[in-house]
Amino acid sequence: MNPIISVRGLVKHFPVRSRGILRRQIGDVHAVCDVDFDIYPHETLGLVGESGCGKTTTGRLLLNLVPATAGTINFQGRDIVPLSRAQMRPLRREMQIVFQDPYASLDPRMTVHEVIAEPLRIHGLYRRETVRDLLTTVGLDASHGNRYAHEFSGGQRQRIGVARALALRPKVLVLDEPVSALDVSIQAGVVNLLEDLQDELGLSYLFISHDLSVVRHIADRVAVMYLGRIVEIAPVEELFQRAAHPYTQALISAIPVPDPRKERSRRRIILAGDVPSPVDPPSGCRFRTRCPKFAGQLSEDERTKCAEEVPALTDHGEGHQTACHYAEALALI
């Protein structure tokens, strides 16, 4: 099966400017660096990592909402990176986004009907019945279209955001931490809604989150990101049971287990230090400054290799790829 989206060598640098009148460029924030991944039809690819690792920037690059510094993003065989805003407009019908904050992403001056109708009006597809059907599809009453966003709960607002994203019947949805601001009970309802919509409409998702428990529930494959680079990609159960990258192992070890006995006996991996600045990332492997292996298990020659050579994503079979010179699968469950 051919991917619906194929990303290769994706790079995004944001300029850092000095203070004062001239505001010269004095550096770059290396937000996304040489990222490769594919999304297949009807698939959910989870993108996980710590705050500030480049997840949201990757999602916005995928839709060409921010211009890429380098790389290609092939959507159904067409590279969208060099396209202008006018050239992108027809493709906006095929690719949409649900933003993280349901409080900030809806215009408080517009009724819910107007919010959902806006993309339909822009593309000349507006029909009142379509808006009513979309509200019903996401589990809201059709009469709710006359209300304003502040009259709804957080979960309901996120459903409104989903309805707006679905208005043009896209093929790809970027879901930027769509449940992180919601209560746990409401999270389950929104995640179940997204799964039902995917089955019904045949959607492909890029699901961005820092909550690995939610990602395990909804994703088919998972890509783990650290400081702008993808360090591991694998099918969801393969990743959770046999994580090979030390960073992924540390993330999974931090997930709480509801059984107290298992929780006490589990191996926890505590990472030392802070995440380095993306303005001046470490050479070679970016994770080496916090890697438990680098600190105590590798020889001097091996540490030199980590410091000088950027590890490439290496295939370990069954779609499991890891960017680590000395990756070792670890049974975590």
Rank of each mutant, 00 (worst) to 15 (best):
V131K: 11
R221N: 08
V222I: 15
E328N: 07
D220V: 04
V66S: 04
A244Y: 00
Y226M: 13
L206G: 04
L332N: 04
S18P: 01
M225H: 10
R132V: 07
V35A: 03
P102H: 05
S253F: 06
F37L: 14
I116L: 02
G161M: 12
R127W: 01
E129F: 01
G49T: 08
Q187F: 10
Y126L: 14
L227G: 05
N74M: 15
L65D: 04
R60Y: 12
P170C: 09
R288W: 10
R132M: 03
G228Q: 07
R127Q: 14
A167I: 04
E177A: 11
I233D: 08
Y103V: 05
R89Y: 08
I39R: 00
L227T: 02
D107G: 09
R23C: 02
E300N: 06
N64D: 06
L134E: 12
P235Q: 13
D211A: 07
L298H: 05
V98Q: 11
R78H: 14
I5S: 00
R85D: 14
A312L: 15
D196T: 14
R288K: 13
P311F: 12
I333T: 13
V231L: 07
G154W: 07
L45K: 04
L125T: 00
I255V: 15
I5Y: 00
I73R: 07
I4K: 05
I21M: 13
V191A: 05
R216A: 11
P119A: 08
E195V: 13
G9P: 00
G71E: 09
H325M: 10
I160W: 07
S283P: 00
E177M: 11
E318G: 09
I5F: 00
L271D: 08
V224Y: 06
Q100C: 11
E238H: 11
C291H: 09
F152D: 06
P235V: 11
D280C: 09
G27H: 05
I333V: 14
K12H: 13
R121V: 15
P235L: 13
D79L: 11
G273H: 10
Q297L: 13
T289W: 00
R164S: 06
Q241R: 15
R17N: 05
P41V: 11
E195W: 00
P311W: 12
I160L: 09
D301K: 15
G154S: 11
Q198Y: 06
F37A: 04
L166H: 10
P82K: 07
C33F: 02
L61K: 06
G59E: 08
V138F: 10
F14Q: 05
K262D: 03
Y126D: 03
P108I: 13
D315E: 15
G46C: 07
D199E: 15
H150V: 01
P260T: 12
A244I: 02
P178Y: 02
R24V: 01
P282N: 03
R264N: 01
G139I: 02
R290V: 04
E238R: 15
M225D: 06
F14P: 08
G284H: 10
Y103W: 15
